[in-house]
C-alpha cells in the first residue's frame, strides 16, 4: 500500500512539471504587453522599457521560466503587476474563503447524495426511487447562479433568515461563518449532489445483483451489515470516481458563486486578474487549480487500492 502511494506520487511529479511549463507559457499566449498594461497607453517609450527591464521581459524565455519556477517552488508567485503586493499572501488571505465554500459544498452534497443514492438504489423501481431520480435530474439541470439568486431572494431579501453576502472567518464566529456559508455552499453543491446521487444509485443497483451479496445473505448476516459492509465498499468505487471529478467542478463553480455572494475568495481574485491581465496572479491561480486536480486524482487512485484489492497488483 505504501509502495503504491509512493509510485503514484512519483508519477505525479513529472505531470506537475509539464503543467508548470504550460502555465508559464501563458506569458507567450496572452495577447497584449504587460508593460503597456501597467503604465497605460500614454506612457513614454522609456518608461515602458524600464518596466520591461524590471519584469525581466528582455531575458531569454528559458531563463525567465527557471527564475519563475525557482520562486514558485518556494511558494513565491511574485507580485501583482498593479498593487505590487505579494500574490502568495493575497492568495493565502483568500484561500480560507474558497476552501470553506468548496468544503461546505462538498459536505452538503455528500450529506444529500449518500442517503439519497442508497435509498434510491436499494428501492429501485419504487415511488421513492422515482421521486429521488426526478429530484436528481432537476438538481443537475438547475444552474448554480440561478439557484443562488433564488435562494438569496427567498432567504435573505424577502425573509431575514440568512445573510446573502459577505464572509465571516470561522475563527471569529463559527456560527456566523456557517450562516454565511450556507446559501452559497448549497447553491454550489446541489448539482454535485444530484450527479453523485445518480451515480451511487446505479452502482448500488448493479452491486445488489452480484453473487457475493447473495452469499452475504446466505451467511445469515443482518441486512444492514450486508448493505454497509458488503455492498457499500464495492458500490463506492464508481461513486468515488465521480466524486473525484466533482472536486474540480466545485472549485471552478466557486468563481461564479463568489461573485454572486460577494465573497472575496480566490475565484473573485482570479476573475479580476484575468480582466486586468495581471499575469502573475493568473499563473498562480491556474497552477494552484492544476495542483488541486492532480492531488484529487491521486487521492482517488489511492482510494481504489483500498476499496478494490485487485487494483493493488501491478
Amino acid at each position: 500500500m505504501v509502495k503504491l502511494v509512493l509510485r503514484r506520487l512519483s508519477g505525479a511529479i513529472p505531470l506537475l512539471f509539464i503543467i508548470s511549463i504550460i502555465t508559464f507559457s501563458l506569458v507567450l499566449m496572452i495577447p497584449g504587453d504587460p508593460a503597456l498594461t501597467i503604465a497605460g497607453d500614454s506612457a513614454s517609450e522609456q518608461t515602458l522599457a524600464a518596466i520591461r527591464e524590471r519584469l525581466g521581459e528582455n531575458d531569454p524565455i528559458l531563463t525567465r521560466y527557471f527564475a519563475w519556477i525557482g520562486d514558485v517552488l518556494w511558494l513565491d508567485f511574485g507580485s501583482s503587476l498593479f498593487s505590487e503586493t505579494s500574490v502568495t499572501s493575497a492568495i493565502w488571505q483568500r484561500l480560507p474563503v474558497t476552501l470553506s465554500l468548496a468544503v461546505v459544498a462538498l459536505v452538503i452534497s455528500l450529506l444529500i447524495s449518500l442517503p439519497a443514492g442508497l435509498i434510491a438504489g436499494l428501492n429501485s423501481g419504487t415511488i421513492f426511487d422515482r421521486l429521488l431520480t426526478i429530484g436528481a435530474s432537476m438538481g443537475v439541470a438547475i444552474p448554480s447562479f440561478w439557484l443562488g439568486l433564488l435562494l438569496s431572494v427567498v432567504f435573505a431579501v424577502n425573509n431575514d433568515w440568512l445573510p446573502a453576502i459577505g464572509y465571516v472567518s470561522i475563527a471569529e464566529s463559527p456560527v456566523e461563518w456557517f450562516k454565511h456559508m450556507l446559501l452559497p455552499a448549497f447553491s454550489l453543491g446541489l448539482a454535485s449532489s444530484a450527479t453523485l446521487t445518480r451515480q451511487l444509485r446505479s452502482s448500488v443497483i448493479t452491486t445488489m445483483q452480484q453473487d457475493y451479496i447473495r452469499t452475504a445473505r446466505a451467511k445469515g448476516l443482518r441486512g444492514r451489515k450486508v448493505v454497509f459492509k458488503h455492498l457499500l465498499k464495492n458500490a463506492s468505487v464508481p461513486a468515488v470516481t465521480s466524486l473525484g471529478l466533482q472536486i474540480p467542478i466545485l472549485l471552478s463553480g466557486t468563481v461564479i458563486i463568489e461573485g454572486l455572494f460577494s465573497l472575496n475568495g480566490i475565484g473573485n481574485y482570479a476573475v479580476s486578474a484575468v480582466l486586468l491581465q495581471d499575469l502573475p496572479v493568473v499563473q498562480a491561480v491556474v497552477l494552484l487549480s492544476a495542483v488541486v486536480v492532480v492531488v484529487t486524482n491521486l487521492a482517488v487512485d489511492i482510494s481504489y487500492a483500498y476499496l478494490n484489492p485487485k487494483t493493488r497488483l501491478q
Binding site: Q210, D211, Y212, T215, K229, H230, N308
Partner: peptide, 13 residues
C-alpha cells in the same frame, strides 16, 4: 454453496 466461486466471494475482503 454456489456455482460460481469467482463471483460468490466478495472481492473487497
Amino acid at each position: 454453496i454456489f456455482q460460481e466461486p469467482a463471483t460468490s466471494l466478495n472481492p473487497a475482503f
